[in-house]
Design a binder for these strands. Structure first.
Lengths: 212, 212
DNA sequence: ACCTGAACACCGTTCAAGT
DNA sequence: ACCTGAACACCGTTCAAGT
């Protein structure tokens, strides 16, 4: 009770650090938010010296990037399960729902994945690959919805379109910039926005320069 | 040449700090990126002690929020200029273009505005008001596109839809998650994604549970 | 009222030394 | 090979003291 009990390390940690680090980091991330993950706090949580981390990741940026890559792999995985027999609209809705669900269940991780710390200049191949594979899964899903081959340009374009929309939706909802009425389900939110889009596109039909 | 010339302050700064601070902060933000704006570096740039800032903003978070609010006011302003005589599709396209343009011209500020440091828990009324006014401007634009009264629910829904889409698009492009072919203009990017959406919605028409 | 210097408690990162 | 303690250069924030 006299001194603030600086609980000294009693053991000399050995081996197997990486998975411990990663899972602790992921936990802390959701606790403290996407910008406040600290190397020192993380090392303390895991029970090693802060310098220990640097034998596995060259710096904080690299740890962050590996965390994000893990997120993209997971995002790809949840999109890999698809019901091929469902009608197109159903496929579209459940696809969007899956995406929104992932984002809302891992808000800090999601913000990290698309945040400035994983941005263009950080060309880390680990992250790049994970992200590309996630986008690829998305394209497969879109190909099934459109009933077209995945290599066709329209599929790529459409995939980019729904990615923009779902990412925007997830992003705004997590951020709190727009909050849906509290009684609205995620399905409801997706249906509402999808209908909103349909209205908009209908209203702009028949005027000049309509899509090819 | 002997000592690293720590250039001592010669004058005692007086008054008018806030605008200097804000404009310097905005400049630095784009230079160092949305996560790395430092109070100490900012104060040095402006030529005051780091403690001086705290007489105008109670902490870093508040400075950030005011910077973001400034961004939302500007976003609202650029959307306020509209050509009421244009056909609906034209209105939609130029609206999206304006949005994308603002985001790409102020990438760090844009990321800040929608980043975790301006997130839900930060209920700062300054930011809230600026953001609401920006969204309001967006709703006016959508009302004109749909030729409906702004208070109608469909307008609100449609506004939320395009906000999701344009924010997602801007966000992904700034982030670098998807990069458009270098020869593609912003108009081209918007047309492509808009068409992608139209395809998708067409393909899902006529299956079960179509929109009301 | 507004600004400053010095201090405190943090942080990322490095490095010689320990196991 | 993997880990540690101590150090360095940063950072946000506070506060008594100066103008």
């Amino acid at each position: 009770m006299t001194k603030p009990t600086v609980r000294k390390r009693e053991t000399y940690h050995v081996g197997n650090l990486v998975p411990l680090l990663l899972s602790a980091a992921r936990e802390m991330l959701e606790e403290v938010g996407p910008t406040k993950l600290s190397m020192r706090a993380l090392s303390e949580r895991v029970g090693v010296s802060s310098a220990a981390i640097y034998h596995h990741y060259s710096n904080r940026a690299e740890l962050i990037v590996h965390l994000a890559a893990l997120g993209f792999r997971e995002l790809g995985k949840v999109h890999a399960v698809r019901d091929k027999t469902a009608p197109s609209l159903q496929k579209l809705r459940t696809g969007c729902l899956t995406y929104l669900n992932f984002a809302r269940s891992n808000p800090a991780l999601y913000q990290l994945m698309f945040g400035p710390e994983c941005s263009a200049e950080t060309i880390s191949p680990v992250l790049l690959k994970a992200r590309e594979e996630a986008f690829n899964e998305l394209m497969e899903a879109v190909a099934e919805i459109l009933n077209l081959d995945k290599e066709i340009e329209e599929v790529h374009d459409a995939a980019f379109s729904i990615w923009s929309y779902t990412h925007g939706l997830a992003s705004l909802v997590i951020h709190g910039a727009m909050q849906p009425p509290p009684n609205m389900t995620e399905e409801g939110l997706i249906d509402k926005t999808l209908q909103g889009f349909a209205h908009l596109l209908n209203a702009t039909q028949g005027t000049a320069n309509s899509p090819a």
